[in-house]
Amino acid sequence: MGEAIVITSGKGGVGKTTTTANLGTALALNDKKVCLMDTDIGLRNLDVVMGLENRIIYDIIDVAQERCKLKQALIRDKRFDYLYLLPAAQTSDKTDLTPEAMVKMISELKQEFDYILIDCPAGIEQGYQNAVAGADKAIVVTTPEKSSVRDADRIIGLLEKEDIEPAKLVINRIRNHMMKNGDMLDIDEIVQILSIELLGIIADDDEVIKASNHGEPVAFQPNTKASIAYRNISRRILGESVPLQSFEDEKGMFSKVKKFFGMRS
């Protein structure tokens, strides 16, 4: 029996889809059976980030409205045997999907997969309701900006009303130099305001954009900052305890690294 994790943020453009794709990839790298579910009906792009756009025949609405079987709509990843994608529909409307249909699909997927990652659309309307309906856990993605922290706070409040475990936090797009200068919200500050468990932090890395344009999640790359971060998060999901990444690698100065850890501990 697998577990369903919804990845949400409230605000758009903070990296829900990228996070979903990369966590899925990272979990698959750990030999887990993973299914990615895109619930952003009408604005699908998880398939693009995964580079699977050209293989779509059926989509989630076809399954929900029983025009095809669930298995027929699942697309197997090019790189892994047990990473699948259930794409969103591009032509339908959000109201074509219902929470009941989601619960049904997810319980079916849970028989087959270890992890079902649900990519949630932005906003707190029907699309969000659908995405959250069948989830057991939730990951809230935010960036070190006031507006996205505010929306994350709103979403966490809404998630508390659902019957799921307390949400965990991923802080995306961290620019270390800005954070140091105080031009960006500090990690500690964000965690203090949102007061939920921090699952991981991801640096703002050009490689992420490059990789998703190539339809190849960055988590594949062996040693970029972002790929390590995503793989660390997936290990934490699997229950390992992995220390938070340090961002001080650029200069490679040992003393600075030490100082960084000293401040944190």
Binding site: R150, D151, D153, R154, I156, G157, L158, E160, S195
Partner: peptide
């Protein structure tokens, strides 16, 4: 005096 333990989050 009512005692409440809760995070009052955005929108609540």
């Amino acid at each position: 005096l009512k005692v409440i333990t809760k995070m009052v989050r955005s929108g609540q």
